[in-house]
Design a protein around this nucleic acid. Structure first.
Lengths: 376, 376
DNA sequence: ACCAAAATTTTACGCGCGGAAACTTTGTAG
DNA sequence: CTACAAAGTTTCCGCGCGTAAAATTTTGGT
């Protein structure tokens, strides 16, 4: 017999011959083989040895499975199933300039709206092969700063942040965004980050004012005096513009209150208004659903029937399509935010940029949809 | 002049003399000094050099600030302010057997109850000098498994988990808890983890049944047919025991529904019951507040007035003191869970154990308080 | 069957820190 | 002042992996 070819193919050939000869003993051999498999894989080197592939190649595979040849990838993935090895993420991230960590920051997780959008964003990050870590500023400027501060040491590949808004430390966020690719969502901060994606809050006003005027008395606008969220201002402006376009006089009712307990503020503010002069219109458009929930609660307390039916005394509408707004009494008419579109924009813009795409739009606004329920 | 003492004290002496001579130039020197300070501290070695303390001591300080002498700690902390260096957490955790990472896992962040308790737990971890990372299983068994799986690679010092409950992969959690100190909260899994702390759901039933019976018709019990959370069973049992103790016949109304959309389930189930035979009592105790919110919504849809007043047709009570339950129409009478006590127990038990304390109680139950509002 | 291009292997170094060992300085007590 | 334990310093090694360069092998197409 003549051996031709490189030593590897010769070895392959010999190995196959030997294995065929030994096949009848396979039942005896196998227990030993599994025993050998049990030898703990402690690091990439062990795994490389066990899988018969060099460590640098394994390393390449974990950084990008497509960076290795198909056949190699298959061999690695097969070995991976056998030995269930996973690289030490601390050692990985130590030398890598760019980790696959993504910081996800929202102003308040106690607000189901943000909980929902955070969930959506999180899922998308994981699906894209990144590792999101979720943070909530709990409505607090210092905590937002603290989060960014501790985020630095995670060397994140990117940041997806819904800023607190007015109370954010904009300089801090801007500084951070210059080091780490950052995409904003929900709440806009001028000239910060790669891009911003959120709802067209101005359009919200037009949409719902049109509807409310078409079906009854033109609405007044119910809001917090010093809204922490810039969206509230856009919404007020949208309301005013829409009213004026229709030839009505805008009427804004501002109530005091600090912080993020919007339901509480809406309720207390509502009670105050009701107990003094009352609302200037029998239709109240609230700056957001949570205020509306509080206001509905206040109306109930004062036995004022809410709804669009003839036996009702007041119509109330909100904005956001908060997860709970369909369970208020009556269910809340509102404008839905496009959760999916917003989270999709944020994630895809960030990852697109990380992979070299150009940013096409600095600001992307998504339209809301009118959700008609019983309250207005 | 004669120099006596070791070379360090001599140097110190000389340095002080030199410095005093140069004091008048301090305004000239300082810019240079700050310039020197700007020399980027890239690692612990640089920082050690800059602060004039050896690297191993710096290392000790970061692992436990109390492990170094007071004067040394002050010097380090002063240098820390000057140079704002922070150790590379990846390099730190690579060699340390025990990180300061704490995994915090809740079944669903979209539920404000868990959002709230998670916030509480998070805060306590940070205050204790640990680094919590928050995860939500989103009501999904696979995601819970996935979280624990990816948590492994973070080498967490401990795990604080509110399991999904019935649908949890108990074997997985148990296996995990044998490697990582684990404390359960909210939802009990027998014989898993160091300790469990949660509400005494059995007592909830007694408390509210007593109240409802004292003030009106004995309640029926409204629940999901296959509650994913074991607390629901305890609550039913508590209801039944309390009713029997008072000589009443317990009546349980179970509605179908899967998942974590409790409001939806409560609403649909409520509509179904109302539209067929109606509830067996004019007082309905709901297994949790979210079901109650759904039921109130159903009653409103059918124009059934809810409340304890004479013009009402049905009384509804819940359990949890959900953040929104005070804004329902009418505000929901319920049993409050002791968020503070539960999170405190979880955190303190875990950290106590990490620092060598013995576990005193495997199971700790906290009593709820009756929150009387208008709904019952 | 041959050859250039692509992929893999070999070899070697470094990241930033933890931690051990042997030694020196410091603080405190007798 | 001496003695001694505690704290700090020096020196060294290793963790698990990224990454670069050079050598080698494999691949795909002619």
């Amino acid at each position: 017999m003549l051996f031709c070819g490189n030593y590897k193919s010769v070895l392959d050939f010999v190995a196959r011959q030997v294995f065929d000869k030994l096949r009848k003993f396979v039942s005896i051999i196998e227990p030993k083989a599994t025993e050998a498999m049990e030898t703990k894989i402690r690091n990439m080197e062990d795994f490389a040895k066990a899988s018969g592939i060099s460590r640098p190649t394994i390393s390449k595979y974990f950084n990008d499975p497509n960076a290795v040849r198909n056949t190699t990838r298959e061999r690695i993935e097969q070995a991976l199933e056998t030995y269930d090895y996973r690289p030490n993420i601390f050692a990985m991230n130590q030398n890598r300039k760019l980790t696959r960590n993504i910081g996800v920051v929202v102003p308040s997780l106690a607000d189901p709206f943000f909980a929902e959008i955070a969930r959506n964003v999180e899922r998308r990050c994981i699906d894209a092969g990144y590792q999101p870590t979720l943070y909530s500023a709990h409505g607090n400027r210092d905590q937002e700063v603290e989060i960014l501060d501790s985020l630095r040491s995670l060397k994140p590949a990117g940041l997806l942040i819904a800023p607190l808004g007015r109370s954010s430390d904009k300089a801090m966020i801007e500084k951070f965004s210059q080091k780490v690719p950052t995409v904003l969502f929900d709440s806009y901060l001028p000239d910060i980050g790669l891009s911003f994606g959120g709802s067209d809050n101005f359009q919200f006003g037009r949409l719902i004012v049109d509807y409310l005027c078409r079906t009854g008395t033109p609405p007044c606008f119910f809001e917090m005096q010093n809204p922490s969220n810039p969206n509230a201002n856009k919404r007020r402006q949208g309301y005013i513009a829409a009213m004026e376009a229709l030839g009505h006089t805008p009427q804004v009712v501002s109530v005091t209150g600090e912080g993020w307990n919007f339901e509480e503020i809406g309720r207390n503010g509502g009670l105050e208004v009701i107990d003094s002069d009352g609302f200037p219109s029998d239709t109240v458009l609230c700056s957001n659903d949570r205020l509306a929930i509080g206001l509905i609660s206040a109306c109930f307390a004062r036995k004022i029937p809410v709804g669009f039916e003839s036996d009702s005394a007041i119509r109330i509408a909100g904005m956001d399509d908060h997860p709970f707004s369909r369970f208020t009494c009556p269910p809340l008419t509102t404008i839905s935010q496009d959760y999916e579109a917003i989270s999709k924009h944020a994630v895809e813009t960030l990852f697109g940029n990380l992979e070299g795409d150009e940013i096409t739009d600095k600001v992307v606004l998504f339209e809301g949809n009118l959700i008609m329920r019983k309250s207005a």
